[in-house]
């Protein structure tokens, strides 16, 4: 089974984030520390496990320039067979829908049996690309899978999804898109030698022309008008006393001041 894994390089969750006064579209400042999105690493690990039991190739795919290729090197260090980067100036002015169009065009060219991706990227956390790519390919999609294996009943895969207050068991025929929730696999820590090797790995490059996509297809449908800092919480009120006293004081404050009881 050949698997394409969609990967994205995102700001490190611990990178410092500040929003400048005035709050315009350029007000967001993020410290220059990057990681591969956590759920994408889970998807990648699962792809490698499936390759181990079913054979085939694992192809990492990303869209974008600059730091984007680092996600591919990480994927190669994990053990991916190929790394494909779509890089084009038009990607600098698009939105998530444009990225989904680019990725789906690249997937169509790579013609895998399965696309795996994280359930959401660590930066915008929209959970958009998996479903959009499935729609653009005309494929079924299982969101937020926590288990995935070959179905015993029929050709295809059986997945377990835990979402919206229930656990669902789903069968899907291939080709399909499956997005990874925590629990699907535990991402490995790649060996240093593999990380070194990945630095020299070949990255296959594609641009819009190679994918037969006109730049107008990347015209954004949403645009950031500005950024604001999150609302600040007032300073904490520390409550002293014995356990029963503190509990009584807290319940009084929750009822009369915060008005969240009753």
């Amino acid at each position: 089974m050949n698997i394409v894994v969609l990967v994205k390089q995102v700001p490190d969750p611990e990178a410092r984030v500040t929003v400048k006064e005035g709050g315009g579209p350029d007000a967001l400042q993020v410290e220059d520390r990057w990681v591969t999105s956590y759920f994408d690493e889970i998807a990648l690990e699962k792809a490698l496990l499936l390759r181990g039991s079913l054979g085939g190739a694992v192809i990492a795919l990303t869209a974008g320039g600059g730091k984007a290729a680092d996600a591919l090197r990480r994927a190669v260090a994990f053990g991916a067979d190929r790394a494909v980067q779509v890089d084009d100036p038009a990607l600098g002015h698009t939105d998530a829908l444009g990225v989904a169009r680019v990725l789906s065009a690249a997937v169509r060219r790579l013609a895998p049996d399965l696309v795996l991706a994280g359930r959401a990227a660590g930066d915008d956390e929209a959970g958009f690309v998996g479903g959009a790519v499935a729609e653009l390919l005309g494929w079924p999609h299982i969101e937020e899978a926590v288990e995935l294996d070959v179905a015993e009943c029929c050709p295809g895969l059986r997945a377990t999804r835990v979402a919206d207050g229930a656990k669902e068991i789903l069968d899907v025929a291939l080709p399909a898109v499956v997005t990874a929730q925590k629990g699907l696999a535990v991402p490995r820590v790649p060996q240093v030698t593999n990380v070194m090797k990945a630095m020299r790995a070949k990255i296959e490059k594609l641009d819009l022309a190679a994918l037969g996509l006109a730049p107008e297809r990347l015209a954004p449908t949403v645009a950031v008008a500005g950024y604001q800092a999150p609302p600040a919480r007032p300073p904490v009120k520390m409550i002293a006393g014995t356990a029963p006293e503190a509990a009584r004081t807290l319940v009084g404050l929750l009822r009369d001041e915060a008005k969240v009881l009753g």
């Binding site: 984030v17 929003v19 967001l28 930066d123 950031v224 008008a225 800092a229």
Partner: peptide, 10 residues
Amino acid sequence: VLGGRAYATL
């Protein structure tokens, strides 16, 4: 966005 450390207006 970014785990709630900023809010974007779209």
